[in-house]
Design a protein around this nucleic acid. Sequence first.
DNA 1: TTATAAATGTTATATTATTACATAGTGTTA
DNA 2: TAACACTATGTAATAATATAACATTTATAA
Lengths: 136, 136
Amino acid sequence: MGISKIDKMHNLSKNQQIIFDLIDKSPEPLKAYTILYNVQKRGIKAPPQVYRALDKLVEMGKIHKIESRNAFIACHNSSCQVDKATAFSICEVCEKVTEISSTGLSKYLANFKDKDGMKYNKYNLEFFGLCKKCRT
Amino acid sequence: MGISKIDKMHNLSKNQQIIFDLIDKSPEPLKAYTILYNVQKRGIKAPPQVYRALDKLVEMGKIHKIESRNAFIACHNSSCQVDKATAFSICEVCEKVTEISSTGLSKYLANFKDKDGMKYNKYNLEFFGLCKKCRT
DNA sequence: TTATAAATGTTATATTATTACATAGTGTTA
DNA sequence: TAACACTATGTAATAATATAACATTTATAA
């Protein structure tokens, strides 16, 4: 029998679970060292433990890295099983980050071909602007 | 009279010019400390000098930062006067980076509205895959 | 159970980026 | 020109982000 790949995806190791829980609860992207400080009481003491868990969680698609901010947010797009196609909006004033899930956008980008007719297996898109709150 | 804003955009300061020239000549994205090592003979000795020039050049749109790689490439898209709308393809094997200039893509993204009908003033898109060479 | 892979613990270090403050150049305008 | 504001530079120190290397433990599968 054994567990299927899908089941396995939800089976986080101890450190992965601790770190995922923290990110998932957070209303904003968390940085690696912020995470470290917050999980030291739970036994995770050193950077490599944090970065290893982050790497795996990103691979699994459970979290995403906001590259322009070196920070991590939980994926709330249930269809994200892999780190493959990501889009975010980022408020340049309050730094609020929201994952964009637009079928139109993801279809457009997944099918985008460059001049040479090449398609890509993965992308990351970050939009910048003012969020509703900061716009007013 | 004085120089117009446009003219001024092409008037780089000494350090900016040295660093721009290096990046512009390079066939691949350069990292800040690689730049530092390469311009020390020209009198630029410390990180802040490099980062300050990089910041200005990015603002002007003369270079772009590849966020996922912490590296910088010259803009070869002549219409880029500002750091506003950027798209790149990145080969995951050889790390070759190419700026994408597709009217269709930039129009689509400039006009993209999220669920709340919000448009953004800026974006950065990074595609990942295999370049021609590495694909074969 | 034994081999294998995945995850962990730990120390040290590498890489990327900024703060803070002093000085010098450039353009503007009174 | 003198005074001012603004931009750029020089320099030392340090902060923030990330990885290497190696020993050990835990989980999984044959």
